[in-house]
Design a protein around this nucleic acid. Structure first.
Length: 183
DNA sequence: TATACGATCACCT
DNA sequence: GGTGATCGTATAC
């Protein structure tokens, strides 16, 4: 599994290096995994697209803590969004996991394809059963959500502006969305 | 206490 | 291309 140190670095570095790694989810005796294929960086109090730009609140508090924890929040009244916090204590930042490819489930000791779409942040959390109960927990097998290395090295990664942040003024155009163009 | 709206998705035309 | 679902959070009173 990835150690906590991995997440204590610059948010953009983390967002980029998460691509191609395995996201694991264990719950109720089931084990899911998928290759992280799309992320977005939300970095620092000045980033108006980041929830943390409005200061520390009960919801965003975890982003101000030492990185390596899970930040899950509800959006549009129906979708849970999965984030991994980054950076050292005191600097609020997180990476939004927007999607994974090749979702699988462990069956009889081997991973088999899971016939669902996990190519959006809401779809990912729905199928991997990721909810706000995980909020503020460590990214670790004992909480049922963690990341592992894979042998996959993305051939080409592209950057685009982030999705759904039109309200963020000049920050909406920053190319802080990272996705695998070619495996 | 009340109100407005969002880091989305599925379904419609 | 557009819209409705649905509710926690932030903000305003």
């Amino acid at each position: 599994m990835l150690e906590r140190d991995f997440f204590l670095r610059n948010t953009h570095t983390v967002a980029q290096e998460l691509l191609g790694k395995y996201l694991y989810r264990q719950i109720d005796g089931q084990l899911f995994r998928g290759i992280i294929s799309e992320t977005e960086a939300y970095h620092g109090p000045e980033d108006l697209a980041c929830h943390c730009a409005k200061g520390k609140t009960p919801r965003t508090e975890v982003m101000f803590e030492k990185g390596g924890k899970i930040y899950v929040y509800l959006i549009y009244g129906m979708y849970d969004m999965l984030n991994f916090t980054t950076m050292e204590e005191g600097f609020p930042a997180a990476v939004l996991i927007r999607g994974v490819m090749q979702p699988e489930i462990l069956q009889d000791g081997k991973f088999v394809p899971l016939p669902v779409k996990t190519d959006g942040p809401g779809k990912l959390t729905k199928h991997f059963r990721i909810t706000r109960e995980l909020n503020k927990n460590l990214i670790h097998p004992k909480t049922g959500l963690w990341v592992e290395e894979s042998r996959i090295k993305p051939v080409e990664i592209i950057r685009t502006p982030r999705i759904g942040v039109d309200y963020a003024g000049p920050w909406k155009e920053k190319p802080w969305r990272y996705l695998i163009k070619k495996l």
